[in-house]
Nucleic acid binder design. Structure first.
Length: 414
DNA sequence: TCTGGGGTCCTAGGACCC
DNA sequence: TCTGGGGTCCTAGGACCC
């Protein structure tokens, strides 16, 4: 077996860079740029420029706090179109260099360079990485940092060493030594909860864990997590680049600018979310069997309810019908101010994976999705595609908007 | 004006089946 | 009149990532 050679290409402050490219006269002229939601609508920071970070601003921070810390910054919403466009552009360049590329997120790509030594005339992996970095910058205007190692987790950690616009390759055989410098919390997958539970037992650094035997770690963390951390702390990383990861779920959720307690208003919001979720599902040619409704109350406690139906559904009506029952069940258990509402679909199947015979000859159970539901939903997708999202608004929302004297979008738009 | 939105993965208990 | 024992599916919750 050849030695795996895996690179992680990570775009540097990606959303900020996209915002600057999208608005060269505004955001593009400032080095203090903060991308995120609205301060008056419970928004948070999505990404901050390096200069803004020196003021203490960081991703996930409430926007209102960011405004206080760095009032002179240019504040911009997420430049969605540019984010998507540059993602494809960067990917296209990477595809020219690597036989296998996996987009791990909108701004991160794994490249499997295993077996490409001859192709690159035995130049070092670092030299190849530098050429990739240059090509991406020249052709897309996006700055990337690249990490390289024998596994994906180490490659990702290597990319963080020289950010921004850096390259760091872990030499084969040097994995354990490379890991020893990090805190446990630096490992992707070790979040606040796990880091704290390890800290309480006296382990803060990766090297603290590397000294432990497996049974001790198992007694702390259980089998699977113990084995994972045991191996990683010794530099053993079996993470490879995947060819294809099928999507597991689709969801839409909304935090309201003010908590909502009125059940009727919540059902209206739920319908909008069901419509969004159905549209996303159909855009990807998917159907789903499990509907999940999520509520976050004003005190930040989360509750969810889900139901799995016998046959996959995709229409707004079918999704909403199940979601509404789930919402009513949740509100029966606890009413009061709701901060966030969400609708999700899982147990997804592709349109073509379905058993045609079953679909044709089955008795439709009460309330089940019919062919008519699907046609209606697909027609509304076409209208939305042509005239925009506002073109199709469920009847109930229109009535409500007329009554309230609004267009039914209050607080829900970024 | 504290705390977004879209995901993945894991766990644990109960139902159900053989 | 002592509680079998897996496997699978479903549900709820939580940690974690960008």
């Amino acid at each position: 077996m050849p030695i795996p050679r895996i690179l992680l290409a990570d775009c540097d402050s990606y959303f900020v860079r996209c915002a600057m490219l999208a608005d060269p006269e505004g955001a593009g002229r400032s080095d203090l740029v903060i991308v995120g939601g609205r301060a008056d609508a419970r928004g948070v920071v999505t990404s901050a420029s390096y200069a803004a970070r020196t003021f203490g601003v960081h991703a996930g921070m409430p926007m209102a706090t960011a405004v206080r810390l760095c009032p002179k910054a240019v504040f911009v919403p997420v430049p969605g179109e540019m984010v998507t466009r540059k993602h494809h552009e960067v990917r296209a360049v990477l595809d020219e260099f690597a036989p296998l590329v996996e987009a791990a997120s909108v701004d991160e790509f794994f490249l499997d360079m295993t077996g490409t030594e001859m192709l690159y005339r035995n130049e070092t992996l670092e030299a190849t990485a530098l050429r990739i970095q240059q090509a991406v910058m020249d052709r897309t205007g996006i700055s990337i940092s690249i990490g390289g190692a024998t596994g994906r987790t180490l490659a990702k950690m290597a990319a963080s060493v020289n950010k921004p616009y850096g390259v760091h390759i872990v030499p084969p055989g040097g994995e354990a030594e490379f890991m020893a410098r990090f805190e446990l919390a630096d490992i992707p997958g070790v979040g606040p909860a796990l880091a704290e539970s390890l800290r309480r037992r006296g382990a803060t650094m990766v090297r603290d864990v590397a000294m432990l035997d497996l049974p001790t770690l198992v007694s702390w963390l259980g089998d699977s997590r113990a084995e994972w951390l045991y191996r990683l702390s010794r530099g053993q990383d079996t993470g490879r680049v995947a060819t294809h990861r099928p999507q597991k779920s689709v969801s839409h959720e909304r935090t309201f600018s003010k908590d909502v307690a009125d059940p009727e208003e919540l059902e209206t919001r739920l319908m909008m979310l069901a419509v969004d979720t159905g549209a996303s599902l159909r855009a990807d040619n998917l159907r789903g069997r499990t509907v999940t409704v999520r509520i976050r109350y004003g005190d930040f406690t989360d509750k969810s309810a889900s139901r799995t139906v016998p046959d996959p559904i995709e229409s707004d009506r079918a999704i909403y019908t199940v979601a509404r029952e789930l919402l009513r069940g949740l509100l029966r258990k606890r009413g009061g101010g709701v901060r966030l509402l969400g609708v999700g679909m899982s147990k997804l199947v592709g349109e073509d994976e379905e058993d045609e015979e079953l679909v044709l000859f089955r008795d439709a159970p009460d309330g089940a999705e019919t062919e008519r539901d699907r046609k209606i939903a697909q027609a509304s997708d076409r209208l939305r595609g042509k005239f925009g999202k506002e073109a199709i608004v469920p009847a109930r929302i229109v009535q409500r908007s007329v009554r309230d004297g609004t267009r039914g979008r209050g607080g829900s738009q970024p």
